[in-house]
C-alpha cells in the first residue's frame, strides 16, 4: 500500500464517519464541529488529488467563514433540534431516492472521464500539467477573463449598494457617540456653577 493511498483511506474514512455524525449527533454544536471536521478531511482529499488551491479555499472559506457562521447561528438561535429530528425516519425514503439520483449523476460525470479520457483535453482551456493550479487559475481569471472578472465585481458592488439602499434607515433623533465632539469639550462648556439657596431645589 502506497503512502497516498493510505492517506486517501484515512481522510475518506474520517470524512464519511464525521459526515454521519453531523446528522446523528444530539447536540447541534457538536454537529457543526463534525461538519468542520468533514471539511478539513475533504480539503485533505483535494490536496491528494493535486488541487491545492481548492483545498486551501475550502479551509479558508468554508471552515473559516461559513462553519463559524453556522456555529454562531446554532448558539444564538434557540432552536429545538430534538423536535426537528423527530420525523427523520419518515423522510428517510425520500432522502434515499435523492441520494441515489445524486450517486447516479456522480457516476455519469466520473464515467465520462473513464470511458473517454480525451474529453478533458478538448476543453476551452485545456489543463496544462506544467503549472500549478493556483497560477493557472490566476492566469485565467486575471488575464483571459479579466473583463468578466471585473464585470462580476461590478455586479457585487451593485448588490452591496442595493442592500444598503433598501434596508439602511437614518433615524433622526438617535444619540450617537461623537468622540471628536466629546474630547473637544472644554470645562467651561461642560460645567456650570450654580448658587443654590438652601432649602430650594434647582
Amino acid at each position: 500500500m502506497t503512502l497516498p493511498l493510505f492517506f486517501f483511506y484515512i481522510f475518506s474514512a474520517i470524512a464519511v464517519a464525521s459526515a454521519l455524525m453531523v446528522i446523528a449527533s444530539r447536540n447541534p454544536v457538536h454537529s457543526v464541529l463534525f461538519l468542520i471536521l468533514t471539511f478539513v478531511n475533504a480539503a485533505g482529499l483535494f490536496m491528494l488529488a493535486g488541487a491545492e488551491f481548492l483545498a486551501l479555499i475550502l479551509i479558508v472559506v468554508y471552515v473559516g467563514a461559513v462553519a463559524v457562521l453556522f456555529l454562531f447561528v446554532t448558539m444564538m438561535l434557540d432552536v429545538d433540534f430534538a423536535s426537528l429530528k423527530q420525523g427523520m425516519l419518515q423522510y428517510a425514503p425520500i432522502g434515499v431516492v435523492v441520494g441515489a439520483i445524486m450517486l447516479i449523476e456522480l457516476l455519469l460525470v466520473g464515467g465520462s472521464y473513464v470511458l473517454a479520457p480525451e474529453v478533458a483535453s478538448q476543453a476551452v482551456v485545456p489543463i496544462d500539467a506544467g503549472i500549478d493550479n493556483t497560477r493557472a487559475l490566476g492566469q485565467l481569471l486575471y488575464t483571459r477573463y479579466v473583463f468578466l472578472f471585473q464585470g462580476a465585481g461590478a455586479v457585487l458592488l451593485v448588490a452591496m449598494i442595493g442592500a444598503i439602499v433598501l434596508t439602511l434607515r437614518h433615524k433622526s433623533g438617535v444619540k450617537r457617540q461623537d468622540i471628536f465632539k466629546q474630547s473637544n469639550r472644554t470645562r467651561a462648556q461642560a460645567t456650570e456653577l450654580v448658587k443654590v439657596k438652601s432649602g430650594q431645589g434647582l
Binding site: 476551452v124 496544462d128 503549472i131 485565467l140 488575464t143 483571459r144 479579466v146
Partner: peptide, 9 residues
C-alpha cells in the same frame, strides 16, 4: 511557459 490561451490580448 505562457500558452496563447492564457495570455491576454
Amino acid at each position: 511557459m505562457q500558452s496563447a490561451i492564457t495570455s491576454s490580448d
